[in-house]
């Protein structure tokens, strides 16, 4: 499994990550980011891409 951490102090809720891995990252109706903290290894490329496009570089993938 891949462990995902988002630094919610850094996150500005731009939602760029959602377009790379919409099954993992979502903006709720209030525009706040929600995310799944563990995903299958097969989603690694998508989750890495989501971390890459974060303007605040707030996403850590382990």
């Amino acid at each position: 499994m891949i462990k995902i951490t988002v630094d919610m102090d850094a996150c500005q809720h731009y939602g760029q990550c959602c377009f790379e891995a919409e099954d993992v990252f979502k903006l709720d109706d209030a525009g706040k980011l929600t995310y799944v903290k563990e995903v299958d290894d097969r989603r690694r490329d998508a989750v890495e891409a989501a971390a890459d496009v974060c303007p605040m570089q707030a996403i850590t993938v382990e």
Binding site: H13, Y14, G15, C18, F19, L27, D28, D29, A30, G31
Partner: peptide, 11 residues
């Protein structure tokens, strides 16, 4: 402007 979550459909 302050409508981030509504922009996805436009993208």
């Amino acid at each position: 402007i302050d409508r981030t979550s509504d922009l996805a459909q436009y993208r």
